[in-house]
């Protein structure tokens, strides 16, 4: 059977949720994979949780609606409550422990606590929390190559040197932490 991976990014509006998902989708597309990025839309665009689903596959993607994704990266507590229970058995859940002080209490999946906001502040810009999470996710799943993501960031941020440096650091921090956690 063909390989398909699904991930939900969920958090508050403004946490870079949609961007993280799009970066993953762009990069996977550049690697020649089939991709589909689906946002939640409508009234919940404001105030509530923002989320998007990215499907990456070796073959043509069937349903763009994923009721039970393989994995999720949740950035705030409402998102954990919304998606924590939906993840497939044996799936992967990454929790932003800077803002969420509980866990999913599920023993049928792999769960990691990653304080992405705290790391982002350490790196020098609270806005790169999404990049740290994405880097950790990629390191853990190998869904795309780390190098491809770095190239994509370079392409997207090209002229903004300062921002690029901070994003590179965010990538490295996310990766480092993921390596440590998985070990």
């Amino acid at each position: 059977m063909a390989q398909q991976n699904e991930v939900v990014f969920a958090g508050f509006g403004g946490q870079g949720i949609m961007t993280a998902g799009q970066l993953l989708a762009y990069t996977a597309m550049e690697e020649g994979k089939h991709v589909c990025w689906i946002p939640s839309y409508g009234p919940e665009m404001r105030g509530g949780t923002a989320n998007c689903t990215v499907v990456v596959s070796d073959k043509r993607i069937g349903s763009p609606i994923i009721n039970h994704p393989y994995s999720a990266c949740v950035f705030n507590r409402p998102s954990l409550e919304k998606f924590g229970g939906l993840i497939k058995k044996d799936g992967l859940l990454l929790i932003n422990s800077s803002l969420i002080d509980v866990s999913s209490e599920r023993d049928d999946l792999t769960e990691y606590l990653i304080p992405v906001n705290d790391i982002a502040v350490k790196v020098g810009n609270p806005k790169v929390a999404n990049i740290i999470m994405l880097a950790a996710y990629i390191e853990m799943t190998g869904i795309i190559k780390f190098k491809s993501l770095k190239n994509m960031l370079t392409k997207k941020l090209g002229k903004k040197k300062d921002l690029l440096e901070i994003n590179y650091s965010a990538l490295e921090e996310g990766r480092k932490l993921a390596k440590k956690l998985v070990k």
């Binding site: 991709v35 589909c36 990025w37 689906i38 946002p39 839309y41 763009p64 609606i65």
Partner: peptide
């Protein structure tokens, strides 16, 4: 449907 409009694909 709204899904076709909202989703991103290559």
């Amino acid at each position: 449907d709204g899904m076709i409009g909202q989703m991103m694909e290559s």
